[in-house]
Simulated scan of single mutants.
Amino acid sequence: MSDTKDIVCIGSVLWDVIGRSASVMRQGSDVPGRITRLPGGVAMNIAMAAARFGMSPVLMTAIGQDAEGAELVAACQGLGMNVDHVYRSDDLPTDRYMAVEGANGLIAAIADAHSLEAAGDKILRPLLNGPLGSGESPFRGRIALDGNLTRQLLEIIATSAAFGMADLRVAPASPGKAERLRPFLTHSRAMLYVNLEEAGLLCQTTFDDAARAAAALVGRGAARVVVTDGGRSAAEAGAAGVITGTPPEVLVTRVTGAGDTFMAAHIAAEAEGAGREEALNRALTAAARYVSGDNAL
């Protein structure tokens, strides 16, 4: 894989079951809305968005041999994903994610990624000692990782020679899994994509804005970071300093997958040679369009 538009997406690929209502919701709310089931998971969301931005995503994940798994693999292929390196398990069911969203944002979500966790390093075989790379011949392209992988597996990726030449882009998947990213906090070839809460968890404090959070992460050893804060200003930081950008104001119609869209758009922009400010602004615009329900590029 030498094409500059190739990207390997490692992590959760599952069925997203999302309930959305136009009403403001609180604990115990029972309101009318719509329930959808779509291919999802952080790695899948990144791959789908990357494909929309002209990239060629390769999926590395665990999907069951059950009927849901067969349907999911077919859906991935239909969306243009390369599924040649997906680990298909005979004894693990296909994972699922369930979320409820109201007019006031995400109300609650449960990620059932137990099969991905149970599969362990089997999903990495194509890169550890396979057709995509090995310790003697490391992979040199872009890799997007998500925090649904176990801490042990993330540590393997952070320290293995097979990943030592890769351009690693890492997202925590959720605030509850942010601390799994610690092995990449001082990794010289990793870029972290976190929100304000996740940045605080990694730094064991809280922040008022993305710029301070991004600077603090770099101060703790991060090579490059992007910190987002919903509709407020986001920040990108590294050795060259901190820059900020503000997303366009839009009417929010959905939130699940917005961060993954942002990450994919940022990676795609850099793959096309965009500078720091342009890449950040393009990613913010793409995420804003996504949450508004507009997928136009």
Rank of each mutant, 00 (worst) to 15 (best):
R96E: 04
R96M: 03
Y97K: 01
M98A: 15
A99Y: 01
A103K: 15
G105N: 09
L106D: 07
I107Q: 08
I110R: 06
I110Y: 14
A111C: 04
D112E: 08
S115D: 00
A118M: 04
A119V: 09
G120H: 06
G120V: 10
G120S: 12
I123Q: 02
L128D: 02
G133D: 13
S134N: 02
G135L: 08
E136V: 13
P138C: 11
F139D: 01
F139N: 03
R140H: 04
R140F: 01
I143E: 03
L145P: 02
L145D: 09
L145A: 15
L154R: 10
L154W: 12
E155F: 10
I157K: 00
F163T: 03
F163P: 02
M165R: 03
P172H: 13
P175M: 06
K177P: 01
A178E: 00
R180A: 15
R180Y: 10
L181R: 04
P183I: 13
F184V: 05
L185T: 14
L185D: 03
S188G: 05
L192G: 11
L192H: 11
Y193T: 01
V194G: 05
N195W: 07
N195G: 14
E197I: 15
E197S: 14
L202T: 11
F207L: 12
D208C: 05
D208Y: 06
D209L: 00
D209C: 04
A211V: 12
A213R: 06
A213W: 00
A214S: 14
A215D: 15
G221F: 06
A222G: 13
A222H: 12
R224L: 07
R224F: 09
R224I: 07
V225I: 06
V226F: 02
V227R: 00
T228S: 03
D229E: 02
D229P: 01
G231Y: 05
G231I: 09
G231A: 15
R232S: 03
S233A: 15
A235L: 10
E236H: 12
G238H: 07
A239R: 08
A239P: 03
A239K: 13
